[in-house]
């Protein structure tokens, strides 16, 4: 018979909850405004980061495309790099970067599950990502994002959405 004392759930006080519930020095609005100012200050660095990540991604894609087998380590690198770019874009109002990089991740994920290599689809995604990383595509991309995403979506949809794998 299980020990009821050890199985009983209880709220465990943590330093985080104790401090966070104390009277704050600034309101939510002030804190968020301070956070937005901090993000704004980092925008010049964002452009350098994406530039560097795109260079690494280009190398990874080229190496992945040279391999007959898929998945391969270069494809995994390309997924990780694309995911990093994805996770940066919208923070700096480059929503298009996040959408295109997400599509690239999904493509590599499906290729991995299907054990297929598709150089054309990968290079097309890379070129699209380079395009939307330019300041012209900041915010809504001037109406050009939707047709671009539709075209990329068609490339991705050649491969079935994985249903059996987890994570």
């Amino acid at each position: 018979m299980p020990n009821k004392m050890t199985n009983e759930a209880r709220i465990v006080p943590t330093r985080f909850t104790q401090i966070a519930r104390q009277k704050p020095g600034m309101s939510r609005e002030e804190a968020i405004q301070a956070g937005q100012s901090a993000v704004l200050e980092m925008e010049p660095e964002y452009l350098d980061w994406v530039d560097g990540l795109l260079r690494e991604l280009w190398s990874a894609v080229e190496l992945a495309c040279q391999e007959d087998d898929f998945p391969n380590p270069h494809g995994e690198d390309a997924y990780g790099l694309s995911n990093q770019i994805r996770n940066l874009g919208a923070t700096f109002d480059y929503e298009a970067v996040t959408h295109v990089a997400d599509s690239f991740c999904e493509l590599i994920h499906r290729l991995t599950e299907a054990k297929r290599n598709d150089q054309h689809a990968m290079r097309t995604h890379l070129n699209a990502l380079r395009l939307v990383s330019t300041p012209n595509f900041k915010r809504d991309g001037g109406g050009e994002l939707e047709p671009l995403m539709n075209a990329l979506g068609q490339l991705v949809s050649h491969y079935p959405e994985p249903t059996g794998s987890v994570g």
């Binding site: 050890t6 985080f16 939510r28 804190a31 996770n87 919208a90």
Partner: peptide, 23 residues
């Protein structure tokens, strides 16, 4: 991607809605 408001609100939720710890 992260936004200051999204992060703040989740931290606020976690601080103000502690849940029992199941073992």
């Amino acid at each position: 991607p992260l936004s200051p408001g999204g992060l703040y609100d989740r931290l606020s939720w976690m601080a103000n809605h502690p849940r029992p710890f199941v073992d």
